[in-house]
Amino acid sequence: MAMLVILIGLVAITVTVVAVLAGFKLATDSQRRALPPARPPLPGPSPWQGFQGQPGPRYPAYNPAQYLSPGDRERINVMLRGGHKIQAIKLYRQSTGAGLAEAKAAVEHLERYQ
């Protein structure tokens, strides 16, 4: 009798595992069929391509020096060449009214591309 109960239990477990695996396979197959087909790319250049196919977005180049007077720009360049980055950021903030983060980014840009 105990052997029969064990055998029935094993059969029940096997049937349950097979049913779960079959259900999983059916679910994944139906999910694959439910996906829409991929759309073809839009005609023309990508909006993330620059001019003449060069990589990069299409917007004007960032130039933080456009907000500075020529004298202030020269003073900032002198400070940067002398290693006085904090004073250059202070001068940029005084000249333009920019916040600290914006002034820091602008001065670092000037330092990198002067």
Rank of each mutant, 00 (worst) to 15 (best):
A2E: 10
M3S: 12
M3N: 11
L4P: 05
L4Y: 05
V5W: 02
I8A: 14
G9M: 05
G9N: 06
V11C: 08
A12I: 06
I13P: 02
V18D: 03
V18M: 10
A19S: 12
V20H: 04
V20D: 05
V20R: 06
L21T: 12
A22I: 14
A22P: 02
A22G: 10
A22K: 07
A22Y: 07
A27R: 13
T28H: 11
S30A: 14
Q31C: 04
R32L: 13
A34F: 05
L35D: 05
L35E: 13
P36G: 03
P37F: 03
A38K: 09
R39H: 06
L42D: 09
P43K: 05
G44V: 01
P45E: 10
P45D: 10
W48I: 05
Q52T: 00
G53R: 04
P55V: 04
G56Q: 00
R58P: 08
Y59C: 07
P60E: 07
A61R: 02
N63H: 09
P64H: 03
P64S: 03
A65R: 11
Y67I: 09
P70A: 08
G71I: 07
R73T: 00
I76D: 01
V78E: 09
V78I: 08
K85E: 15
I86E: 15
Q87Y: 11
A88I: 02
A88N: 04
I89G: 01
Y92N: 00
R93W: 04
Q94N: 12
T96F: 04
G99T: 09
L100E: 14
L100Q: 13
A103V: 12
K104V: 13
A106L: 06
A106K: 07
E108S: 13
L110F: 13
L110Y: 14
E111L: 13
Y113S: 10
Q114F: 15
